[in-house]
């Protein structure tokens, strides 16, 4: 293992105006920054552009417009250095079915300049992964853990994780989240985590970015989102008296209407009689998606 020096920077990711077009999908003008020492959750429905965004950051797809800086470096000019300091877990593509973690270790320690064999073996032990078990014989949860162990073994400064917890049971997910929180104790480390499991993100993400149909609808501090956003449950007639600028979106149901509002304090001041429920990330996401 080569000695690794930490890259000091304010932002682990700086993405500006990323655009990418496919035949049936367009990612439009995605801009966000991830401060070092924080976790950002990337949420969005299937096909919203989360994986495409991650692939654009990694240079796996060529962007049509925009710029990317990872750890204050331009990936196109410092590809090897950026990737040496970045750990990635993608939903698709990993190791060969016939190989075991032991063989993976033998291969990857020769492929990665900062591969820490002892740490990899320690992670395998911590995750309860047998060294000799072939990848094809592993459960979905074991595979997810192995992918994470391989991503973390070189002590990266930036983790890009695409749906890493899918397939994990609640106990394993909780362990996994603890590991992420431990990872960012080193303030030079950061994580971009794409996930459908919004309750996980509420626990660990400092920032939440929401992608919808290829557009970034918001990128805000998770605590601010959870503190300020609220859901008003009211009748249809009460809803019709609201001004459009007072709410983000609404959903009609059998009993009336669920209305998503952006600032509970402002709304309460205008409508002291209204009953406001806290809005979870899932509620915010689903109601935002239905915005008209």
């Amino acid at each position: 293992m080569t000695t690794m020096e930490r890259i000091h920077c304010d932002y682990a990711i700086e993405a500006k105006g990323l655009c990418k077009s496919f035949d049936d999908f367009q990612l439009q003008n995605i801009s966000f920054s991830l401060p070092c020492g924080t976790i950002m959750g990337l949420i969005g429905e299937n096909g919203a552009g989360k994986t495409t965004t991650l692939k654009l950051l990694l240079g796996m797809l060529r962007r049509e417009q925009g710029s990317v800086r990872l750890l204050n470096l331009l990936p196109e000019e410092n590809e090897a250095e950026v990737k040496a300091h970045t750990g990635t877990v993608l939903a698709q593509g990993f190791f060969y079915e016939e190989l075991s973690p032991k063989q993976m270790n033998t291969i990857l320690r020769r492929c990665h300049p900062f591969w820490d064999e002892a740490y990899f073996l320690q992670l395998l032990k911590q995750f309860g992964l047998p060294l000799q078990k072939r990848y094809k014989d592993m459960s979905q949860g074991m595979r997810a853990k192995l992918k994470l162990a391989a991503a973390m073994a070189p002590h990266p400064q930036l983790l890009l994780l695409d749906e890493p917890t899918s397939g994990l049971d609640p106990v394993a997910r909780s362990q996994f989240l603890d590991l992420l929180l431990e990872f960012i104790q080193d303030e030079t480390c950061s994580i971009l985590l794409s996930s459908h499991i919004t309750s996980d993100l509420e626990k660990v993400a400092d920032y939440t970015a929401y992608l919808h149909q290829g557009q970034l609808l918001f990128c805000e501090e998770t605590s601010v989102l959870l503190e300020h956003y609220a859901v008003v449950r009211c009748g249809w007639q009460d809803f019709q008296q609201l001004l459009p600028e007072e709410y983000v979106s609404y959903r009609k149901n059998a009993f009336g209407c669920d209305v998503l509002i952006r600032d509970r304090n402002v709304f309460s001041a205008r409508h002291p009689e209204a009953v406001l429920d806290p809005a979870s990330l899932e509620t915010i996401m689903t109601l935002y998606a239905e915005r008209r």
Binding site: M60, E79, G93, F94, C111
Partner: peptide, 18 residues
Amino acid sequence: SLDQSSQWNVYAVTLPIR
């Protein structure tokens, strides 16, 4: 064929290998 079935290249391009 093995590379394709495991999508090795997708993973390999995320590693610091040219």
